[in-house]
């Protein structure tokens, strides 16, 4: 997979397995995540793409009975995110996440974005103001909310809520940003806005996005991985995956014969 011209890596899964109790949900995954690129995970429902995504910020640690095996290397410091000595909270401070359904807190727009900073102990009002503004601008929602920062975030539209959640994740300058089907609860116009945003964000942050929409993967990603039944079937440049897939199963999926 690694070629001489490959760009720098942000992360890399090595012999990664994941278990829900006794059930093995992910099998021996090896995959690079290229720095400042968008990598899409596609595959039919239940193939493990969300499970895989949620391993990058150790979300599975919140629930008992889950177990990781193997490594997810994180660069440039070459940390294994899954190592027992690595605190999942430290991992989450470096890896942000945007969820399937917009999940703003029932607090003000400002407090939603400032939350990650408050968690890190930021108390300076000026610093909070500046960073919240920068994050909202980064998520392309500043113009819509700048006059209603103290309004309840839950009163925003679904698309605005999702961009607010992106701002919340951006406020703390994550190195890797995880998107778990971020547009599945949104209408086409809001979806377009999020896709455009993902395209802009890759200038500053590495992005890993799960999507059930192949057109979306083709539109926004530089690399695509096709997963099936907990296995990584094929990984490559998005153009290659969609134009000349190497594996029969990938071809069946992207041509709509399966899934």
């Amino acid at each position: 997979m690694q070629t001489a011209s490959a760009p720098a890596l942000k992360a890399e899964a090595r012999n990664f397995n994941f278990f829900y109790g006794d059930v093995q949900a992910l099998k021996n995954i090896n995959m690079p995540i290229h720095d400042k690129k968008v990598t899409a995970l596609i595959g039919p429902s239940g193939c493990g793409k969300s499970t895989y995504l949620r391993s990058f910020n150790r979300m599975h640690d919140l629930y008992p009975g889950n177990r990781y095996e193997g490594e997810i290397r994180f660069y440039p410091d070459n940390t294994n995110l899954l190592a027992p000595g690595v605190d999942p909270i430290e991992v989450r401070m470096r890896v942000g996440m945007v969820f399937q359904k917009p999940n703003p807190f029932p607090k003000s727009v400002f407090e939603n974005v400032a939350y990650g900073l408050r968690v890190r102990g930021e108390k300076n009002r000026r610093a909070l103001d500046d960073k919240v503004e920068a994050a909202l601008k980064g998520a392309a929602i500043w113009d819509e909310v700048k006059d209603r920062l103290q309004d309840l975030a839950t009163n925003l539209s679904g698309g605005q809520q999702q961009r607010l959640c992106i701002a919340r994740a951006l406020a703390t300058d994550p190195e890797l940003l995880l998107f778990d089907e971020p547009t599945s609860a949104l209408d086409p116009i809001a979806t377009g806005a999020i896709e455009e945003l993902v395209h802009e964000l890759k200038q500053r942050v590495t992005i890993l996005i799960v999507t059930h929409n192949m057109q979306q993967a083709a539109r926004v990603s530089d690399y695509t991985a096709y997963m099936y039944l907990g296995e990584m079937i094929e990984f490559g440049k998005t153009d290659d995956i969609f134009i000349k897939p190497q594996d029969k199963r990938t071809e069946d999926y992207i041509t709509g014969r399966m899934g």
């Binding site: 909270i89 703003p104 807190f105 939350y115 990650g116």
Partner: peptide, 13 residues
């Protein structure tokens, strides 16, 4: 659960 996850995801204890 998504509220809890949203909070933990930014690195909260």
């Amino acid at each position: 659960a998504m509220i809890r996850e949203g909070s933990m995801a930014v690195g909260a204890t």
